[in-house]
Write a protein that binds this DNA or RNA. Structure first.
Lengths: 191, 191
DNA sequence: CCCTTAATTAACCGTTGTTCAATTAAATCG
DNA sequence: CGATTTAATTGAACAACGGTTAATTAAGGG
């Protein structure tokens, strides 16, 4: 009935996640079907069920990767040879850069709004935010209120969310991003 | 085959929009079906098609109503008996209030990334933003750069988008909103 | 009594997530 | 090398649900 493909063309968890990612971001969880993913991959839909238990399972595996990535990027900031001010600026700009470099990831992590999945994808964002907040606090010598850090995050989020939506790259909006970040920094340092 | 209901119980466009409104808020465009709306109304799904051409038609009729709402709300600001500073504050806070009071419409206007529907809902947001930007410029005596107004908008957008996502009402986050707005105002006035 | 309006219901046709027997390629073993 | 086992893929089948349409029926006004 059905030929099995050669070993060098075997389907992998990663390949599925990659394709699923693009589709989920483009169209949302509900709108993307297992069949669509399979079609895009050039495989039958049944094949996906060999690698993932079900649709939700695939989805969770997908965003798990994403959060690991941003956490790692946040952690790497400490190692830079920069002043506190420069590090802070790099932190804020880096958040934007991450969001626009991996818009698919960012959208799934912080923008996408699906009732079914939100329950599962609520812990990881919180954890990433905590890491961000701690970095900001450290880089401002704990002089900044908790509430303010949260506002800063939302200000960055607004920038990223908007340009994610209209599909601009970081390069295209780099100048605007810098000016946005400068405004935020001004606000942080002026109390 | 099927009895028609009495006149005093006839289905109306408004009734449909009201129910659809609630459901769309709760679950989003894709997740809400015509059958669900009809079930909620206590009518058959076919009945809706007498009042609306199709699902998209219903959806647009629904948001059209409230598209005018934000513009009207922006316009009404002029008539308030307040100082410029107070008006500006009310403008920023009002934007957040609108977004969280009508999260589904806000989502369609500024967040949703549905290819099908975005085509229809791309002009109106731009128009609303222009009105917002002009109001800000006027209330700051044209002392603020264009770029800065845009950043201010994105800062508000970040707030609304996030709390839309996790489904909080304006009341629930009113204090946070005020503090967020105060930060933005501080930034505006400090250059 | 006819005609428009409004509602119901069945039906059409497509898609969905998921399961599963059948099938085949690769790997392993004798 | 040949036989057997294991892994991976297929495609059919299922039951549910989607939007939409058309035939049908009933209500009320002229």
């Amino acid at each position: 009935m059905a030929p099995r493909k050669a070993v060098d063309q075997e389907l992998s968890r990663e390949a599925i996640i990659d394709v699923a990612h693009q589709l989920f971001v483009d169209q949302g969880f509900q709108a993307v079907s297992m069949r669509m993913i399979a079609r895009e991959l050039g495989y039958s839909h049944g094949a996906i069920y060999y690698h993932f238990k079900n649709k939700a399972d695939l989805f969770y595996a997908m965003i798990e990767q994403d959060f690991a990535m941003i956490n790692q990027e946040l952690a790497q900031l400490d190692k830079l040879e920069l002043s506190r001010e420069e590090k802070l600026k790099e932190l804020l700009l880096g958040f934007i850069r991450f969001g626009l470099t991996y818009p698919n990831h960012y959208e799934v992590m912080f923008i996408m709004n699906d009732k079914e999945l939100q329950h599962y994808a609520t812990n990881a964002p919180e954890q990433s935010y905590q890491q961000f907040a701690q970095a900001v606090a450290a880089l401002t010598n704990q002089q900044i209120e908790i509430k303010k850090i949260w506002s800063v995050f939302l200000m960055l989020h607004g920038f990223v969310a908007h340009y994610c939506r209209i599909g601009h790259s970081f390069q295209e909006v780099e100048e605007l991003a810098m000016s946005h970040v400068d405004m935020i920094l001004g606000m942080i340092y002026m109390g």
